[in-house]
Amino acid sequence: MVAQNIAFGIISGIVVLSALRMVTTRNIVHSALFLVAVLAGLSGQYVLLAAEFVATTQVLVYIGAVMVLFLFGIMLTKAPIGKSMQMTGTQWPIAAGVALMLGAVILYSLLDQFGSERVTEGGKIYRTADVGDEVFSTYIIPFEAISVLLLAALIGAIVLARKD
């Protein structure tokens, strides 16, 4: 368990630092790349939790597809690439206050509720096949609904973004 805790610590450090840089950096492309670091780190956390399929999907979908989409969005909106003073709005102190308040209350309730509870160890490990079984049996209707949602999003994105 020690090795895992060390891995968790290292990855968490990277993730949190990257996330902080992501919301504070003045360079929008850097911001996107920090988000990649966060997502990759989370993928590592999923591996630590023995959720192999989620980890893989995280890499494939987020880093592979969503991030490319973001980079395209940055390019197409001709955002200033390179440093810019205008990345953070004037109301950032309020935002920071709200975020800190929210964080404080969540942290307090988590510590209060779960205290030193440990993650179940040596429990059943769900492999990709188990996830597939579950998706296509118990959750078949939500799954179909998601596919319809993706189709709707696809059509909606095309309708919105095309030039006419």
Binding site: Q91, G97, V98, L102
Partner: peptide, 20 residues
């Protein structure tokens, strides 16, 4: 939209504090 967002999250946080 961000002002509304601040109010939303702020109100949620305040409510959560009240509940806690």
């Amino acid at each position: 939209v961000q002002n509304y967002g601040q109010l939303l999250f702020g109100a949620a946080a305040v409510l959560a504090i009240v509940f806690v």
